[in-house]
């Protein structure tokens, strides 16, 4: 069994605060972390390895310091880890990212299953997983909360997908790409043995040159259909509080409900 896990280094957006005076992000001390959703993807791949044998390869695209998240993946138990890093990849949107990752995956050789987290907490798009699946022409199973059945010999997989209304049970064929949600498992901590291995291992860095057969026009900004044209801080929470007055509580309630309905939140 060969499982591939796509992971990303992201700023810990829960640690980001807005400077109330300047309205800009306070980024001092905001650590770069392994995208939390990706830890579930790694865990699920490792569980398959424990059950069926084989190997798990972690792959990431980013600046050289993104090696940190690959180390974490290896410390958890991944066997190999590869970083895609090149100036040519800069400015990639989700299309170009999916293209680049899928080119690297092709180069990794045969695989049975690919895991991604449901989305990254910095971009929150959830588009790269489906993008990779389409580039590789394999089945995509998004928002997976449980693998009910998997048989690598027969190429079968049956999963539960967590949708708004409940869990959909879907059967498909391998190889497939799964994006996973938090409910799927409880990720392990890195073991001390894994930490030792991770800190002593060599991490190959692949550049655009290494992705033979890829079209360089699809890398980075050139391969990205979208452009960011403006970034701004959302208006801060207004200091204005409207106190609802009324002769009776019924009157107050009616006024409040009216306003909330007008806000279109109910």
């Amino acid at each position: 069994m060969h499982a591939i896990v796509c992971i990303k280094q992201v700023p810990d957006t829960t640690e980001v605060k807005i400077d109330p005076v300047r309205g800009t992000l306070i980024r001092e001390g905001v650590p770069s972390i392994l995208n939390p959703f990706d830890t579930y993807a790694i865990e699920e791949a490792l569980r398959l390895k424990e059950q069926f044998g084989g190997k798990v390869t972690a792959i990431s695209m980013g600046p050289p310091q993104a090696i940190e998240v690959l180390k974490e993946a290896v410390a958890m138990g991944c066997d190999e880890a590869i970083l895609l890093s090149d100036r040519a990849f800069a400015g990639s949107d989700t299309w170009a990212t999916a293209y680049t990752l899928s080119q690297a995956i092709r180069r990794l050789g045969p695989f049975d299953i690919i895991f991604c987290g449901r989305q990254a907490i910095d971009g929150d798009t959830g588009q790269v997983g489906p993008g990779i699946a389409r580039q590789l022409k394999i089945n995509q199973l998004t928002y997976v909360c449980k693998i009910q059945h998997i048989d690598f010999d027969k190429g079968e997989i049956r999963v539960e997908r967590l949708l708004e209304e409940g869990r959909e049970v879907v059967e498909s064929r391998l190889p497939a790409l799964l994006t996973v949600v938090k409910d799927i498992n409880q990720p392990r901590y890195p073991t001390f043995k894994g930490i030792r291995r991770a800190s002593r291992m060599e991490y190959p860095i692949w550049t655009a040159k290494d992705l033979e057969g890829a079209n360089p026009a699809y890398f980075g900004l050139d391969g990205s259909p979208t452009r960011v044209v403006r970034v701004f801080t959302p208006p801060p929470r207004s200091g204005q509080t409207e106190i609802i007055q009324g002769e009776t509580v019924q009157e107050q309630a009616a006024k409040l409900v009216e306003k909330l309905l007008a806000e279109k939140i109910i």
Partner: peptide, 21 residues
């Protein structure tokens, strides 16, 4: 929605166009 995001990601990749989530 979960279905909308699933579908849009696949379609945009196939068509080679931009998609904003």
């Amino acid at each position: 929605s979960t279905r909308g995001r699933d579908l849009a990601g696949a379609v945009a990749t196939e068509i080679f166009t931009g998609l904003t989530a």
